[in-house]
Amino acid sequence: MSAAPVRPSRLAAHDNALHGLLESLLAELPEEVEALPAAAQPALATVHAPAPGPGGVAAVPLNDQAARPLTAQVSPPSTPADPAVPAWGAQGFRALLFRIGAYRFAMPLVLLRSIAPLAERLTGVAGRPAWQLGLLRYRGRPVLVTDLGPLLGIQARCAAPRYLLVIGDGRTAVACDQIEQAVVVGTGDVRWRAAAAGRAVWLAGLLLRQMCAVLDADVIDERIRHG
């Protein structure tokens, strides 16, 4: 699951795409949190992403590990914009970095039920909307696999889904092209969404060093369930 070499042309496309997405996302965030004190940003510690078993599912008890709060965290910088820090992010968290098309995203491990390689054909239900890629039988029950871009109304498209990020109660999943790594994130490493930021509540914030969106998987799961 290590990152494949990226060609210059793909890098340029990624930069453009990333710039566009972050611009739109940042537009919903307050300007007051622009400058975070450097001293308040602990170094990110990289941990290994779980590898899937052969022909099966990486049955990693993500929640059990990730639910434990990290120690020695730095308090978030106070901002007048009243950032909406979710409970799982209040004392730092671990996040999985993954890619959909040219975009990189981060998802808190505490909200991630499991990671599964997409080895089977998806069952396509006739009349399904574009954001529904299809159904997959996973651990004995159907899981709805979704394309995050059309679901959230952003440009990312999962053209060749290879992995599933199973969320919620295990009946919904987000497809992605590539799993990168898991990182430990301190509260100062995130620009949290403002509480009054409005519509993009699926966006918990931005990882400042990776410059990628942190997704609130619970909100995404809810959106999937309500179409």
Partner: peptide
């Protein structure tokens, strides 16, 4: 099994649910 969101869209309202059959899903 009434999979999440399946059958909630106007275009797929006639889908009652899905069931596992052998290696496939039956709609």
């Amino acid at each position: 099994d009434s999979a999440p969101s399946i059958g909630s869209e106007e275009s797929s309202r006639y889908i009652q649910g899905v069931a596992s059959r052998d290696e496939d899903l039956l709609i």
